[in-house]
């Protein structure tokens, strides 16, 4: 594991901690998309099925369990928590997730390495992760004056993807025969989706203003 991959994972971990902190400290999930969180839970559950039959390292196992549990925890807060659930604005969070999940499943059934249940589900999770942030970005666009922690959460999530790009470049240069086209192409699309957000995030940060995305 190289430094970019590790930094990427830590940024991913931090983004989730920031999100949980925001929800727990403010007892509010304003500006957080339940749809995106549910998509992430689906991504993690379909990707980490290998927890049941393959072991890579204690690090990997811990991170996989953390990602599954933490997204489950965020969903629980938004849906079930007495005070937090009242701050969820379902009227704004209207993205049709089936429009994302169905094409990803069709693509996973068509373009994959191996036509087995676990491999197709793994491929599905790679495709779905690439677009799972879209409901969150749409919600941010509808929210005037995004609160700082929610903005930081999305920024860290995007940062994690950018670090994974560097990780792949490093691996291409140092590991002979290393290639994974499905992951590279999906990951590049996933990172590109954040470009617009990055632009406005950095602009608002430099001008010392609250973040608000133009609609």
């Amino acid at each position: 594991m190289n430094i970019f991959r590790f930094a990427g994972d830590m940024t991913h971990l931090l983004s989730i901690i920031v999100l949980l902190l925001k929800i727990n400290a403010t007892k509010s999930c304003a500006g957080v998309s339940l749809k995106t969180q549910e998509l992430y839970l689906l991504v993690f559950v379909t990707r980490y099925l290998d927890l049941l039959y393959s072991y890579i390292s204690l690090y990997n196992t811990f991170m996989k369990l953390f990602f599954i549990c933490s997204s489950g925890c965020v969903i629980w807060y938004i849906r079930e928590h007495k005070t937090v659930s009242q701050t969820y604005d379902s009227a704004q969070d209207t993205f049709r997730v089936l429009f994302l999940a169905c094409p990803c499943m069709i693509l996973a059934l068509t373009v994959n390495h191996d036509f087995t249940v676990t491999e197709v589900l793994w491929t599905f999770s790679i495709y779905l992760e690439a677009v799972a942030i879209l409901p969150q970005l749409v919600l941010l666009q509808r929210t005037k004056n995004v609160d700082t922690l929610t903005g930081n959460y999305v920024f860290l999530l995007g940062g994690y993807r950018a670090l994974y790009l560097l990780n792949w470049i490093y691996r291409i240069l140092t590991e002979p025969g290393y290639r994974q086209w499905i992951v590279w192409i999906s990951g590049t699309i996933q990172t590109a989706i954040y470009c617009d957000f990055f632009y406005y995030y950095i602009k608002s940060w430099r001008n010392n203003e609250r973040l608000s995305l133009p609609s």
Binding site: R5, D9, H12, D50, S54, I56, N60, M63, K64, F67, H113, D114, E119, W122, Y164, N167, Y178, Q180, V183
Partner: peptide
């Protein structure tokens, strides 16, 4: 082996 390597990332 190839397939296994591809799944070493999170």
């Amino acid at each position: 082996q190839d397939l296994h390597d591809e799944h070493d990332e999170l």
